[in-house]
Lab assay of single mutants.
Amino acid sequence: WKVTVKGVEYTFDNPEEAKKFAEELAKKKGGQIHYKDGEFQVH
């Protein structure tokens, strides 16, 4: 499971962890999460 933040990729074994990480980042940066092709992208 991948989380991509401004072109930087983070990989997680667990989808729950990936989702949590993406949500935290989106909150911090005031961005939005897009889920696409099996990965979370924070913009």
Rank of each mutant, 00 (worst) to 15 (best):
residue 21 F to T: 01
residue 28 K to Y: 12
residue 8 V to R: 11
residue 41 Q to D: 05
residue 21 F to D: 00
residue 42 V to S: 03
residue 24 E to H: 09
residue 19 K to G: 06
residue 4 T to L: 09
residue 27 K to Y: 13
residue 10 Y to R: 02
residue 25 L to Q: 10
residue 37 D to N: 08
residue 3 V to H: 01
residue 37 D to E: 09
residue 3 V to P: 01
residue 41 Q to C: 08
residue 23 E to V: 09
residue 24 E to N: 07
residue 4 T to P: 00
residue 1 W to G: 02
residue 43 H to I: 15
residue 10 Y to L: 03
residue 40 F to W: 15
residue 43 H to P: 04
residue 25 L to M: 13
residue 22 A to Y: 02
residue 9 E to V: 13
residue 10 Y to A: 01
residue 6 K to H: 14
residue 22 A to I: 05
residue 22 A to N: 01
residue 3 V to I: 04
residue 26 A to H: 03
residue 32 Q to V: 14
residue 10 Y to G: 00
residue 19 K to A: 09
residue 40 F to N: 03
residue 4 T to I: 13
residue 30 G to K: 07
residue 2 K to Q: 05
residue 25 L to G: 02
residue 12 F to L: 00
residue 3 V to M: 01
residue 9 E to G: 06
residue 28 K to H: 11
residue 11 T to Y: 15
residue 20 K to S: 11
residue 14 N to Q: 06
residue 28 K to W: 11
residue 5 V to M: 15
residue 9 E to S: 14
residue 19 K to D: 02
residue 1 W to P: 01
residue 24 E to I: 08
residue 35 Y to Q: 05
residue 37 D to V: 03
residue 33 I to A: 05
residue 29 K to F: 15
residue 36 K to G: 08
residue 27 K to W: 10
residue 24 E to R: 08
residue 13 D to P: 10
residue 34 H to E: 13
residue 16 E to P: 01
residue 16 E to Q: 12
residue 29 K to R: 07
residue 17 E to T: 10
residue 14 N to E: 07
residue 1 W to A: 04
residue 30 G to Q: 06
residue 21 F to H: 02
residue 20 K to A: 13
residue 39 E to N: 11
residue 14 N to Y: 07
residue 33 I to P: 03
residue 2 K to S: 06
residue 21 F to R: 01
residue 23 E to W: 06
residue 41 Q to K: 09
residue 1 W to S: 04
residue 39 E to A: 08
residue 5 V to L: 12
residue 39 E to Y: 06
residue 32 Q to S: 13
residue 42 V to E: 03
residue 38 G to Y: 12
residue 25 L to C: 09
residue 34 H to L: 13
residue 28 K to Q: 13
residue 16 E to D: 11
residue 2 K to H: 06
residue 22 A to C: 06
residue 3 V to Q: 00
residue 17 E to N: 08
residue 2 K to N: 04
residue 18 A to L: 03
residue 6 K to L: 13
residue 1 W to R: 01
residue 39 E to K: 07
residue 32 Q to T: 15
residue 34 H to S: 14
residue 16 E to S: 10
residue 31 G to Y: 14
residue 19 K to M: 12
residue 31 G to N: 06
residue 12 F to Q: 00
residue 33 I to K: 02
residue 13 D to M: 08
residue 26 A to F: 03
residue 18 A to P: 00
residue 4 T to A: 04
residue 21 F to C: 06
residue 4 T to C: 04
residue 7 G to T: 06
residue 10 Y to N: 00
residue 31 G to T: 06
residue 20 K to I: 11
residue 30 G to F: 05
residue 3 V to K: 00
residue 18 A to V: 01
residue 32 Q to D: 08
residue 28 K to F: 11
residue 15 P to G: 11
residue 26 A to D: 02
residue 21 F to I: 02
residue 24 E to Q: 10
residue 13 D to K: 09
residue 13 D to Q: 09
residue 33 I to M: 06
residue 42 V to M: 04
residue 26 A to S: 06
residue 23 E to A: 06
residue 1 W to M: 04
residue 18 A to W: 02
residue 43 H to D: 10
residue 43 H to T: 14
residue 38 G to V: 02
residue 6 K to Q: 14
residue 34 H to P: 03
residue 37 D to R: 01
residue 25 L to S: 06
residue 27 K to D: 12
residue 15 P to N: 07
residue 3 V to G: 00
residue 19 K to Y: 14
residue 5 V to E: 14
residue 8 V to M: 13
residue 37 D to W: 01
residue 19 K to P: 00
residue 39 E to C: 03
residue 29 K to A: 15
residue 29 K to V: 15
residue 18 A to N: 00
residue 32 Q to Y: 15
residue 3 V to E: 01
residue 23 E to F: 07
residue 1 W to T: 07
residue 38 G to D: 06
residue 27 K to Q: 13
residue 31 G to Q: 06
residue 5 V to Q: 05
residue 1 W to K: 02
residue 27 K to I: 12
residue 30 G to Y: 05
residue 4 T to N: 06
residue 15 P to L: 15
residue 40 F to M: 05
residue 22 A to M: 04
residue 16 E to T: 11
residue 3 V to D: 01
residue 33 I to L: 08
residue 9 E to P: 03
residue 24 E to V: 07
residue 24 E to L: 10
residue 39 E to W: 07
residue 19 K to R: 14
residue 42 V to L: 08
residue 23 E to D: 08
residue 38 G to E: 05
residue 33 I to Y: 06
residue 14 N to A: 07
residue 11 T to G: 06
residue 35 Y to A: 03
residue 20 K to L: 11
residue 23 E to K: 07
residue 17 E to K: 09
residue 42 V to I: 14
residue 30 G to T: 02
residue 28 K to D: 14
residue 37 D to C: 04
residue 6 K to V: 12
residue 30 G to I: 01
residue 20 K to V: 09
residue 8 V to D: 10
residue 26 A to P: 01
residue 40 F to Q: 03
residue 35 Y to D: 04
residue 11 T to R: 13
residue 21 F to E: 00
residue 14 N to I: 04
residue 34 H to C: 12
